[in-house]
Nucleic acid binder design. Structure first.
Lengths: 234, 234
DNA sequence: CTTATTACTGACAATGCTGTAAGTAGCACG
DNA sequence: CGTGCTACTTACAGCATTGTCAGTAATAAG
């Protein structure tokens, strides 16, 4: 019997507790469940939220219209009413996510244009909040792995230029490529953290050793320090 | 019309030129195509190869029995004859890939137990060959993103211990956590490179600038240098 | 040549998915 | 209250996919 031609794990789990009630109890006929009517804008937002959640968790192929509909509490054609096709829905999700990501990054950079001395730690923490904690890096990782977008490198150049401009005031001899490499390394580490961080850390501790909750934070601090050391020697 | 409920890109493209000929020419009836009979072992290997290729390129959901069957040149029930279900096939692919990965890593580490001075560059290059160039990192990234396996961190602890043991001969004061962090960073960077490397580098060059083919290599050399610098200065 | 084994095939069943069609119901406005 | 708009629903069509079944043919062994 061909039972599950789709994703194997998490077969029917609801993300939120919504879903259509459809009480099979009492009334002999069948009481059609009460219908909630949102504004088009509200509905679109709720649907996009649910879709983005699933996209970050399960990837593009985990985004199923019926699941999203269940999360939101509507029937799946309602989604097709607001977004004309699944594909359009997905590209809307991506568009919105990247737009928010850019805004967050701009804000994170702009928010501290003062000359606070150790800029790396703050920048690393901001990037971590935006990319890893908010789940954006996972969405990007899915998209880049699937090769569905080229727009994953949002603002890398800008960040590198801003960082270098600030850096040469202290280290006039620093080359731009060196700064760029540091930014790239931080970016790669963020993506890697979002994809493989927990797994790698789990593999790093010796068997039976309990998880060290402070380790990710310590690691980021260490990384910030590493990224601000000059490598003149040998 | 619901035409494509599955992956949108690459709808019907064959990867190899095989596929069943089934010549519709000549003979009025229909000539059943000649049948090639492999040993069970050969068949399993060919199927696993094709499945692994698709897994690295398209992810778990890109692994479709009919596509793999077309790649190999058999009908899809033949796959189910050798592997009893799609799920078992996938776990066989993963098992084999991780096994090979571990073997490659062990070999890469063992092959240079001499006291060659700059060990980082060699190690970085070896890790890059094994993880990125051979495509293993992409498979791992897919699996870790999908949360389907915990065994992505193969050998992290071992590498860190070996590296630290070698390191303390030169830097007796080095802490293990520092060494571990360096290994972790290299690992995260490798995963990040496999997932986001090209995209990030494309975003890093200013618009219109041509691609710099040597940059990845320079980056790895720079990374190796960075990972061997001590960060005593506060 | 005959026979046994089994790699392999074609046809089909079962299911889940996207998208369509037509009708229903919530809400604003007269 | 009636009317129009449209968010939303139920039912269904069409297709892709996994898995089953019964049979076919390649190869080895007697």
């Amino acid at each position: 019997m061909a039972r599950t031609p789709r994703k194997s794990p998490s077969p029917h789990t609801k993300v939120k507790g919504r879903s259509v009630p459809s009480p099979p109890e009492a009334t002999g006929k069948s009481v059609p469940p009460p219908r909630r009517r949102r504004t088009a804008e509200e509905a679109r937002a709720e649907i996009l939220d649910a879709a983005e959640r699933r996209l970050a968790e399960l990837g593009p192929d985990g985004v199923r219209l019926q699941q999203i509909a269940a999360d939101v509490g509507v029937s799946h054609p309602a989604i097709l009413h607001h977004f004309e096709s699944r594909e359009r829905l997905l590209s809307e999700v991506v568009r919105r996510a990247i737009q928010r990501l850019e805004a967050d990054i701009v804000q994170a950079i702009a928010s501290k244009n003062e000359a606070d001395e150790p800029p790396a730690l703050e920048t690393i923490e901001a990037a971590h909040r935006v990319l890893v904690a908010k789940g954006h890096a996972r969405v990007l990782a899915w998209l880049m792995l699937a090769g569905q977008t080229q727009e994953g490198g949002t603002g890398v150049r800008t960040v590198a230029e801003v960082a270098h401009e600030r850096r040469v005031r202290i280290e006039p001899n620093a080359t731009f490529e060196d700064t760029l490499f540091r930014v790239l390394l931080a970016g790669l580490a963020m993506i890697g953290e979002a994809v493989a961080g927990p797994t790698l850390r789990a593999a790093a501790r010796r068997p039976g050793e309990p998880e060290d909750a402070q380790m990710p934070e310590r690691f980021r601090a260490w990384l910030a320090k590493l990224l601000t050391t000059s490598l003149e020697s040998g």
